[in-house]
Design a binder for these strands. Structure first.
Length: 915
RNA sequence: AGGCGCGUAGCUCAGUGGGAGAGCGCUUCCUUGACACGGAAGAGGUCAGGGGUUCGAUACCCCUCGUGCCUACCA
């Protein structure tokens, strides 16, 4: 699900920018996921009774490639099913030759410049994967364990004397890992701790061994924890390692646990070969028998686990390769501080800075086989002390044939491979051909945006920034958009072991890619995790259906040449590549939709296009998604399509309305396309295409020139220029995904305002109907009265609409333009509904009239402004705010309470038809 | 232990220093030639709690409670 979200967001950006005229590169690919992949293949081998050592390195790697061929393909298949519009010709894999070349180049240069070095120190080790892990690859998890208090007898007391339990004869330490006492080389106390002053410098007998250890002091010891005395095991604990190295001379390192998680010979004959946890049990049993355990307490503590196989990790002292990243980190911090890179949402910058400022050297070697083998060779003779090579290694871009020091041909390559993230860190430039200075590199580096989850800010993002700055001298990307993590409905992270994983492909099978994509986009609010809900997907599937049906309605009404074709039959549809002129022409004159509804929907369309562009600019995917959803469903379908049903009856407005229907559909499809690529393409391929721009005003455009490409035999008929024209007019593109993204369309604020009154009036009527239970099939007489000049103006502007209503038999209309009043009376009913749009009503007089006459309803649009009854507000709020509120109030004359009274009044009046 | 975030309608979540929103669910009504995967009208919230700033706080500040995550060398 995380990958699906990631893919969808990137695809939305890619499609949007591509349609907006940018040259877009979205480069797909995968990394080789060293440890994880090796583990999977090893499991397969195990089920066949094999292991990698039996196969040998070369055969094993072939086997992994085979696996990769199968599953790498699945990833790509999933991307395609999600509709990812990647440049598939540029697909890359971190183990490709080109990328491997970049890896070797980077390694050698970092080594030559002294940033890469080899060191023997404590490292996190996974005993199951048998490899070193970087600090990031260890996950800490709280475990319920025991804190065991163990008594170390002070020398010169000897074990036989101890059985008496003399007081003061011990120093007691607390530990969660009793088995490690076999590797203890000291006991440490805080130098300020008065209890232990007298012990410092003395020695103690290490139980279960014949060794004597020193009691030392170190400020790192917390006197308040446990007994205030700590056993020091330098070879198996990071703290203890630090303490040991500080001592002069440094404490001895005794390794008692081996790389396989079993006790070594150093643990003594009784314990060697035992698993570390078996050994723990035995050690506790033995100590109990010696009466050296003071007590055991239940204790919660964090234990490191391998992030790939969940085995408990073990600190182990081994030689590994490291990158000194201190100076890179400083540059990387500066790049973000100076806003050459923007992390969005900005709150993640803190996380980034915190980690970067306290960054540790990066352990890059892994003791596995699947990955980039470290480009380091050793001379066999040197190992036998017969070669004079000083630093002991040959670091080279290509495999050396002979030792440069002794000319021996017996060279051995380092067995280890590099951390997968080492190659991933180079991705932004290695995939574009670096170290060669290719055209792609020149055009596309630095890239525009990286979209990713926060869980790999450190693993990947930070390292790409460091490597990009180091090797390209520029940031790898301008924006980093950090999207949310997808959780299940209870807010838990999805994981296979919890069984709460939702498979995107199942969602796609069930609801379709478009609905699934739209859901992800709608969920992608910044700065919050996503709790995935399947019902949302279902809801957006309904949206796809709604759009489909709206398109069907429009196709039914554009009166193209063949009425029998339905949308969805795009293959041989006569509508395929049909085009209509940018504006319908009649007798050489452009015929723009002049009805209010059309002007309104065009303006709303323009507003929504602006909203979407702005939202995407700021990575507010959810806002963009809800804008287009709201527009298509609740403005275009609920209002405009319904209104056209009467407008289409009017020969005067018919042509303009048809054009407007098609234009709005076309534009909406293009707006929606980045979110729902499949259904929008399908519909768009079916409908006649419309040019994307509108004229600023009533500008007269030249009549369309007849051209040879136009009217492929289908354009006949006297009035044909009024109809959608068949043909492949120039400028019409082949696919919606390369059509123009709608932008900067003209607004008509007057139409929007006027229409809002109509909508309010209609809603008022519906409310009355609903509350009075008037059957929808019962046609009402409607009387519309206006009381102000503004209302008059509105009605004048909407005469066309009202006339159409009248024509449809719904109302009779009468209007006196001279006086600010008009009325419309329905055909059948005697009921009248007043719709006062503006102005002051004499309520009392109205009520009297209501009583005398037949049923009438006073519909109100306004609510009371409470603020204007607040003395404090009137006296103390800033003048302009108060004035604004007053002005608002003056506009809003009719009060909600009055409506309700009127309605109550109505209920007392005799109303026909069960009301 | 530090840090970050969240707590708004039954559920999943937007949002804003001045009129509490969406989707789903729920109630009522409606199969009229795009759509019942639909249309119309509704019910439902002291915006976690307390204090402060302000003429005014769901929003800004502080505290408490609940909850999720990240980081860290707690034996």
């Amino acid at each position: 699900m995380g990958h699906a979200l990631n893919t969808v967001l990137q695809d939305i950006l890619s499609r949007w920018k591509r349609m907006s005229g940018y040259k877009v590169l979205w480069l797909p690919g995968t990394d080789h996921a060293g440890i994880a992949t090796q583990n999977v293949v090893e499991k397969q081998l195990a089920s066949e009774g094999l292991d990698r050592h039996k196969l040998g390195r070369d055969v094993f790697i072939k086997r992994v490639w085979k696996w990769k061929a199968e599953y790498g393909g699945k990833i790509i298949h999933q991307l395609k099913r999600l509709g990812a519009s990647c440049d598939w010709s540029k697909e890359r894999f971190t183990l490709d030759e080109g990328l491997s070349k970049a890896v070797r180049e980077v390694f050698v240069r970092l080594y030559e410049e002294g940033f890469i070095y080899r060191d023997n120190r404590l490292i996190n080790w996974c005993p199951r994967c048998n490899t070193a892990l970087s600090d990031l690859e260890v996950e800490y998890e709280e475990l319920e364990g025991k804190l065991t208090y163990i008594k170390y007898p002070l020398t010169p007391l000897t074990p036989p004397l101890l059985r008496g339990g003399e007081k003061g004869g011990y120093i007691t330490v607390a530990t969660t890992r009793p088995e490690t006492i076999l590797g203890d080389t000291a006991v440490a106390v805080n130098p300020e701790d008065s209890r232990y002053q007298k012990f410092i410098g003395k020695t103690a007998n290490l139980p279960l061994t014949d060794r004597t250890i020193l009691i030392i002091s170190d400020h790192a010891v917390d006197p308040s924890f446990g007994t205030g005395a700590v056993k020091v095991t330098p070879a198996h604990d990071f703290n203890d390692e630090a303490i040991a190295k500080k001592q002069n001379p440094p404490l001895e390192f005794i390794t008692v646990i081996g790389s396989d998680g079993r006790m070594t010979v150093n643990a003594g004959n009784r314990y060697k070969g035992l698993d570390r946890y078996e050994c723990r049990k035995l050690v506790i049993k033995d100590l109990k028998e010696l009466n050296l355990i003071e007590k055991e307490e239940l204790y919660k503590y964090a234990v490191g686990h391998c992030y790939r196989c969940k085995t408990i990790t073990e600190p182990l002292s081994t030689p590994q390769w490291y990158v000194n990243v201190q100076s890179f980190a400083k540059d990387a911090i500066r790049a973000v501080k100076e806003e050459r890179i923007n992390i969005i949402p900005k709150t993640w910058e803190n996380t980034y800075f915190a980690w970067m400022e306290d960054i540790k050297d990066w352990c890059i070697s892994r003791q596995i086989w699947w990955g980039h083998r470290i480009p380091v060779w050793y001379c066999q003779k040197m190992l036998n002390a017969k070669c004079k090579m000083q630093n002991g290694v040959i670091v080279s871009r290509v495999a050396p044939q002979i030792c440069p020091y002794c000319e021996s041909e017996e060279l051995i390559q380092d067995e280890d491979v590099l951390d997968t993230w080492f190659s991933s860190a180079l991705w932004p430039f290695s995939t574009l051909g670096w170290p060669d200075n290719t055209d792609d590199l020149k055009i596309f580096y630095p890239t525009s945006v990286l979209v990713t989850g926060f869980d790999i800010i450190f693993f990947w993002v930070a390292r790409m920034i460091m490597m990009g700055l180091k090797f390209m001298g520029d940031v790898p990307f301008r924006d980093v958009y950090i999207h949310a993590l997808i959780r299940d409905l209870k807010g838990h992270k999805m994981s296979k072991s919890k069984g709460n994983v939702v498979d995107p492909l199942i969602m796609i099978d069930r609801y379709g890619t478009d609905a699934f994509r739209f859901t992800l986009a709608a969920f992608a609010a910044q700065g919050r995790d996503i709790k995935f809900s399947e019902e949302r997907v279902e809801g957006y599937r309904h949206f796809v259906n709604k759009l489909w049906n709206a398109a069907r309605f429009i196709m039914m009404n554009i009166k193209a040449e063949s009425e029998n074709r339905r949308i969805g039959e795009s293959e041989n549809s006569p509508f395929h590549r049909v085009s209509v002129p940018p504006c319908p022409i009649r007798d050489g004159t452009p015929y723009w939709p002049s009805d209010l509804a059309s002007k309104w929907i065009l303006s709303r369309l323009a507003a929504i296009a602006d909203d979407i562009n702005r939202a995407l600019e700021e990575y507010r995917f959810n806002d963009a998604a809800s804008s287009i959803y709201q527009f298509i469903w609740h403005e275009f379908c609920d209002w405009y399509l319904e209104m056209t049903k009467s407008e289409l009856q009017d020969p005067k407005s018919e042509i303009g309305v048809r054009w407007c229907l098609l234009y709005t559909l076309d534009t909406s499809l293009r707006l929606l396309h980045p979110f729902m690529p499949f259904v929008t393409e399908e519909i768009w391929q079916t409908i006649p295409h419309v040019k994307s721009h509108l004229p600023e005003t009533e500008e007269v455009r030249p009549p369309t020139q007849p051209s040879p490409s136009r009217g492929e035999g289908k354009g006949g008929g006297g009035n044909s220029e009024l109809r959608p024209q068949i043909g492949n007019e120039s400028g019409i593109k082949e696919s919606i995904m390369v059509s123009d993204y709608p932008k900067s369309l003209p607004r008509d604020y007057q139409a929007e305002e006027d229409m809002s009154y109509i909508i309010e009036a209609v809603m008022g009527i519906r409310t009355i109907r609903g509350e009075l239970n008037i059957s929808p099939s019962f046609k009402l007489k409607v009387m519309i009265k206006t009381f102000t000049q503004m209302a008059e103006k509105i009605l004048k502007g909407n005469m066309q609409y009202l006339k159409n209503l009248a024509k449809a038999g719904e109302i009779k209309i009468g209007m006196n333009i001279e006086k600010p009043e008009c009325s419309a009376t329905s055909v059948k009913s005697s009921m009248e509904i007043y719709v006062p749009l503006k102005g002051v009503l004499n309520i009392a007089a109205e009520v009297d009239r209501l009583k005398k006459e037949e049923a009438k309803v006073d519909v109100s649009i306004v609510s009371l402004n409470k603020k204007l009854f607040n003395e404090d507000f009137l006296q103390r709020a800033p003048r302009e705010i108060v004035d604004k509120e007053k002005a608002k109030y003056e506009e809003l004359i009719i009060i909600k309470r009055r409506i309700m009274e009127s309605i109550k009044m109505l209920k007392d009046v005799e109303v026909r038809n069960d009301s």
